[in-house]
């Protein structure tokens, strides 16, 4: 089954199968040593740049700011959810997300 993934409205949303599923303005904890010097990045999600898949996983590259140190930039690929049986499930917002290159 094909899953339609899109960044919409100037980066405000990740749309999965034409449903607005993941939004900006959340705080995400990232294990992303390359983003800033913090042990865990505490990222304000300001803008989605790209969305992609890794197996059943859906991931995105995100522009944002670490509120612990103030570093800004675009992340590597951040897991945002999974598609199972045609249904998208967003990752728990409190989870620590390991960021790929």
């Amino acid at each position: 089954m094909t899953t339609r993934l899109r960044v919409l409205d100037d980066g405000a949303w990740i749309s999965v199968d034409d449903s607005r599923e993941v939004r900006v303005s959340e705080l995400w904890r990232l294990d992303a040593p390359g983003f800033c010097a913090c042990d865990l990045v505490d990222l304000v999600v300001e803008n989605f740049q790209e969305v992609g898949v890794d197996g059943a996983g859906v991931e995105a590259r995100v522009y944002g700011q670490c509120i612990a140190c103030g570093a800004t930039g675009t992340t590597g690929w951040v897991p945002i959810g999974r598609v199972r049986g045609g249904e998208f499930t967003e990752i728990d917002r409190s989870a620590v997300r390991r960021v790929g290159p």
Binding site: D9, D10, G11, A12, W13, R20, R23, V24, S25, V44, E46, N47
Partner: peptide, 10 residues
């Protein structure tokens, strides 16, 4: 703002 807008953070 967030009352109606998708992009706004606050």
């Amino acid at each position: 703002g967030t009352e109606f807008c998708s992009l706004s953070i606050v």
